[in-house]
């Protein structure tokens, strides 16, 4: 993974670096002083309860939303530089971003054009990915007639086919049948072998357990744990699995729980301070 900066080719140490990212919606703090770093060619599993700030974090990292404070860089490009950054990333929101009125092929060709890819090159890549995701036979049907899973597949293909350096996937397997979910898992695993970095947000913990090199857990806007899956599982009290670990970590930070964390993070247990993985 490389990028050009003033003519010199630079290889960034980290594919994603965030430092003190903060986002407010009115008085509500959606993301609070979030810092993380993701090495290139790895999968970062991003977990958290509903409304914890996962999507807002991803939106800030892909320049869709401006942080109130803090900074970040993706593929070595600051998130304030959208024109440069968009050449390096792919983003799949939780709701597949597709035009229902178009056929899958038309939609993918549209996205290819947005990336400046010529139709000939795009069609070749689209054909291969449609085959891979078992969508080729339906590629000339309008997306409005597709099932949820088929629509999701179109969104995934549109996110990946321009070969970005870093991809942000928000719930990529929700709504997919087991076979399609397996295709997505295999695809993510293959992406990493091609030195692509994957920032993966999902509620399906076995996928994170299987694929992630590092797992970050966000709760109530704060990153409450960050470790390899094995180290995170070791923190679980009941049984050494990711679900128990997730419940334990997020429960520690639950504002309604009896043990309130200290704002300065001086109590490692209560704040779930990071375990370097």
């Amino acid at each position: 993974m490389t990028f050009s900066n003033g003519g010199a080719v630079v290889v960034p140490d980290h594919a994603i670096v965030a430092d003190g990212l903060t986002k407010r919606y009115g008085d509500e703090l959606a993301v609070d002083d979030l810092s993380l770093s993701v090495p290139p060619g790895t999968v970062y599993g991003f977990l958290g309860p509903n409304g914890a700030g996962k999507t807002t974090t991803m939106r800030m990292l892909v320049t869709l939303t401006e942080p109130a404070a803090g900074s970040a860089a993706v593929a070595g490009v600051p998130i304030t530089d959208r024109p440069q950054l968009t050449r390096q990333i792919g983003y799949l929101p939780a709701n597949p971003p597709v035009f229902d009125e178009l056929t899958a092929w038309e939609h993918l060709r549209h996205v290819a054009r947005l990336h400046g890819i010529s139709d000939d090159v795009a069609d070749e890549r689209i054909e291969g990915l449609l085959d891979r995701f078992d969508l080729r036979a339906d590629a000339d049907r309008r997306i409005e007639s597709y099932s949820t899973g088929m629509t999701k597949k179109v969104g995934i293909i549109a996110t990946l086919f321009h070969d970005p350096d870093v991809v942000f996937l928000d719930e990529p397997t929700s709504g997919l049948d087991p076979r399609a979910a397996r295709t997505v898992r295999d695809t993510i695993a293959e992406l990493v072998t091609r030195e692509m970095t994957v920032f993966l947000s999902t509620h399906i913990l076995p996928i994170v357990d299987e694929l992630a090199d590092t797992v970050g857990v966000i709760n109530d806007g704060r990153l409450v744990a960050e470790a390899s899956p094995e180290k995170l599982k070791a923190r679980a009290d009941e049984s050494p699995d990711l679900e128990s670990a997730f419940l334990a970590v997020t429960d520690e930070r639950d504002p309604s729980s009896t043990e309130q964390p200290k704002a300065d993070g001086s109590n490692p247990t209560a704040t779930g301070v990071r375990t370097d993985g």
Partner: peptide
Amino acid sequence: QGAVLPTLLTSPARARH
């Protein structure tokens, strides 16, 4: 752009396009 707005904004296509 509807739901596709994030795709447009995170693509290299610029406003002039």
